[in-house]
Design a protein around this nucleic acid. Sequence first.
DNA 1: GTCTATACTTTGATAGAC
DNA 2: GTCTATCAAAGTATAGAC
Lengths: 189, 189
Amino acid sequence: MSTRIQILDAGEQLARARGLEAFSYADLEKAVGIRKASIHHHFKSKADLALALIERYSERFADALRDIEDAHVTPQERLRAFTGLYRDALAGGEQVCLCVAFAAGRESLPGTVALATRSFQEMALAWLEVTFNELNTPEFPDDPQDEAAAFLALLEGAQIMARGASDPALFDAAIRPFIRRLGVTGLKA
Amino acid sequence: MSTRIQILDAGEQLARARGLEAFSYADLEKAVGIRKASIHHHFKSKADLALALIERYSERFADALRDIEDAHVTPQERLRAFTGLYRDALAGGEQVCLCVAFAAGRESLPGTVALATRSFQEMALAWLEVTFNELNTPEFPDDPQDEAAAFLALLEGAQIMARGASDPALFDAAIRPFIRRLGVTGLKA
DNA sequence: GTCTATACTTTGATAGAC
DNA sequence: GTCTATCAAAGTATAGAC
């Protein structure tokens, strides 16, 4: 595995567990096993690293959405799979989605990073809006745009809650009512 | 207004907009108009300040919950008022709840602060669980504990989303389906 | 690409005068 | 309670050898 990727992996883990401002090149030095100067060779500034982090995260997320579309046909199944993405990102209650970590401290982000974070969110919302639009059932009667926003908020908030208690069970509890509503809908369809 | 309170106010604003690690005593110096050394006189360490912030926040929140109980009788009205608390905390899309800001970067929190943040969340969840328990309607058939977790996650996530885009309209969109479900329920009751 | 060495800044914190 | 002065440590970043 290339050094660049090792740095990105370590940076992402730290950013998602602590926040962008709460880790340093010294932390990366320890995690990757090379000197700070070498890390600067790969990422000239911390802003560059942060931008690379959110861009890579966005690409991986886009890939994951395509995988869901390939593997699942019904909107119910796709939404359940989408939930799995956020459940996995929890990493045992020790991390949140990079987008959540960045959005929380938005004012301290470099401009380009703030924009990329926003784009990530818009990608997620657009995909969900399409999916809720296909989900034409009485259980979700609202504007698909609102249902998408509500669902993404639920998942992001469930991550934050679980993170606050370092307990993934809180994520599961928060998601349960939605999953049940979705299941009932699935049977009706 | 006492200097101590001015420091707390400035610290809270900065923590909720940027995150705890993303502001310094130098920022407080500018905001409050006294020297760093004077701030250390009021809060010996940054950990002390952070703890004071979350404790004051918890007290104010507990007061707000009592006010809601005094002003509203039905669980529907109380939940709507609870939503207002989180909508107000958005501050135009430029801040999140202190609990959310702290929980997001949990790994970098002093131990006492992490515990106090968790307590805050548990207070919110306990209050919501009681309220959902009173809300005995077919629209919310799940375990009140799960409904409480889902609702708090929705509100916290709606804040994060709105913060990511600096746009409170995203909060409103995310909350709308819940408010509608609550409204329908209210009519049936 | 990685290293040592170093520059410069910011940060949290303390000592002691007023 | 607030100030000036100061500190050691940590932070980001660069220069130049290998």
